[in-house]
Design a protein around this nucleic acid. Structure first.
Length: 153
DNA sequence: CGTTTGACTACGC
DNA sequence: CGCGTAGCCAAAC
């Protein structure tokens, strides 16, 4: 069954998530996991537990956006690790998200976003540091290991 | 006030 | 590549 605890201060956690989402520029996308990777574990939460919980807390934060109806947050650029929309397919919100992503030319024929191509690289280091956030995990594939081929020399 | 219900992800088949 | 599973709390109804 799907069941999980909440952060010590849900509202505070959500605020941080929203602040980062506001930085995502047009034409690229971020994921729940990537956002979570930038936010340190709240005091009192074991790192091990946090790793599992954080992505869903980010999901809760995005979910809350619809309740608060905050137009300054480009929530449509937040998708799941598979490059897909995580809202119920028939929902109105999902339709809006599809339309907005399509408008930014990010959707492929399978209604998916190619993270390797359009995955966000995160805010610049100075911004992260100013907000006490960690460097994001990359959404793009690691450079292919060419099996020890020599290059330049 | 008791139940229901989660914008997730890594991992194993 | 797609599908199922664990995770075990709290806000919203």
């Amino acid at each position: 069954m799907s069941t999980y605890p909440q952060p010590p201060n849900p509202r505070a956690y959500h605020e941080i998530v929203w602040e980062i989402v506001r930085q995502v520029p047009r034409g690229v996308v971020t994921t729940f996991g990537q956002l979570a990777s930038m936010i340190p574990a709240p005091e009192g939460v074991e790192a091990k537990d946090y790793e599992k919980l954080a992505p869903r807390w980010v999901g809760d934060a995005m979910n809350a956006v619809s309740r608060i109806d905050e137009p300054t947050i480009p929530w449509h650029r937040v998708i799941n690790s598979k490059g897909g929309i995580s809202l119920p397919e028939e929902s109105v919100s999902a339709a809006i998200q599809r339309a907005r992503l399509r408008a930014e030319n990010l959707l492929d024929q399978k209604e998916r976003v190619d993270l390797d191509q359009y995955g966000w690289e995160g805010p610049d280091a100075a911004w992260l540091e100013a907000h006490n956030l960690r460097a994001p995990k990359s959404l793009r594939k690691p450079p292919p290991d060419d099996g020890g081929q020599m290059r330049l020399f």
